Simulated assay, not measured.
Amino acid sequence: MITGANTGVGFETAKLLAEHGATVILACRNADKAAAAADRITASAPDSTVRTLQLDLASLASVRGAAEQLRADHPRLDLLINNAGGVRPRHAVTEDGFESTFATNHLGPFAFTGLVLDRLLTVPGSRVVTVSSIGHRRGTVDFEDLHFTRGYRYTHAYFQSKLANLMFTYELHRRLASAGVPTVAVAAHPGNARTEFGREMPLPVRVMMRPQLRMLTWWLMQSPQVAALAAVRAAVDPGVRGGEYYGPPGRAQFTGHPARVQSSARSHDTAAQRRLWQESERLTGVTYTVGEPAPVTPS
């Protein structure tokens, strides 16, 4: 299952997996766009099996409803890719009272993963892959104001949520490992992908995303087809281990085929990871039941 799979990197991830024989579920906010994306995939891979699931990660009611539907339809899940993400150029609050970017990029995936995790726990080789961003390096998690009530900058909101994705992955990895289950948690990032992601962003960002400029920005931006390879490698490479992070290599990590990469020192702060986990359980009402985190040495 891939969230946000109707366009961009998520679509290319789903398409590649379907073309190689996976039964793929496209979990998307817009049901019509999900159906259209499924048709596009089956047109290019006629023997593939592609299904859809309506899921709005900014709504806990939708998250719970989608989880119930998935559990009713599928007794097992081999792979969950938390790909969907976004950023709001202006401050917005969800129906649950959360800042929209943090809700969509972290709280929604945290809650959904927890609600369907038992469908992965008995499957050998199963994985939870969460897509972060190179922007996490500029992120901090402000536990005193997670929802930016004191002032909003969309870049700070996005970077915080992408740092949270990695902290979630590393804490989930420790919990899964301590429970001795076959499921592992892995993270990935696509580099700088030329997609519709920046469609609500200021004009300079939208201009950089335009396919017409690819001859000028090839060193800075890459196609969604190449960008999707990081999540796919994290999902299927037999050499991948829990708690690892994959993305384009190199100092800037903007473009290129995926390799194992390093994340920021902040992302490895184990005390902050646990605090974020506890706060996420409190905010979403979703409590994980898979073991306890393994003992760690504070960073």
Rank of each mutant, 00 (worst) to 15 (best):
I2H: 06
G8K: 02
G10A: 04
L17C: 03
E19C: 13
H20G: 05
H20S: 14
A27M: 07
C28A: 13
R29M: 10
A31C: 05
R40H: 10
R40M: 12
T42H: 01
A43V: 03
A45V: 07
P46L: 03
P46E: 07
T49R: 15
L55H: 11
L55T: 10
D56A: 07
L57I: 00
L60A: 07
V63N: 03
V63H: 06
L77C: 06
L79C: 02
N83T: 04
P89N: 00
R90D: 13
R90M: 08
H91Q: 13
D96N: 10
T101R: 08
N105E: 01
H106M: 10
H106S: 09
L107P: 08
L107N: 09
A111I: 04
F112C: 02
T113M: 06
G114E: 02
L115P: 03
L115V: 00
P124W: 01
V128T: 00
S132R: 01
S132D: 04
R137K: 13
V141S: 14
D142T: 08
H147Y: 07
R150P: 11
R150G: 15
R153C: 08
R153D: 14
Y158A: 10
K162D: 06
K162V: 09
L163H: 08
L163D: 07
N165M: 07
N165A: 07
F168C: 11
E171C: 03
H173G: 12
R175Q: 09
L176I: 02
A177Q: 14
S178M: 11
S178N: 15
P182V: 05
T183G: 04
V186P: 03
H189N: 06
P190I: 01
G191A: 09
N192E: 10
A193D: 04
F197Q: 14
G198Q: 09
G198H: 02
R199A: 13
E200A: 14
L203D: 11
R206M: 06
M208H: 03
W218P: 03
W218Y: 14
Q222P: 03
P224K: 06
Q225G: 11
Q225C: 06
L229W: 12
A231D: 13
A231R: 09
A234C: 07
G239I: 07
G242N: 08
E244L: 05
E244C: 10
G247V: 08
P249M: 04
P249D: 05
A252N: 12
T255L: 02
A259E: 14
A259Q: 10
S264R: 07
S264G: 09
S264C: 11
A265E: 15
R266P: 00
R266V: 03
S267M: 03
S267K: 05
H268C: 04
H268K: 11
T270G: 00
R275C: 02
R275N: 02
W277N: 03
Q278G: 15
Q278N: 13
S280K: 00
T284E: 09
Y288G: 01
T289M: 01
G291P: 00
V296D: 10
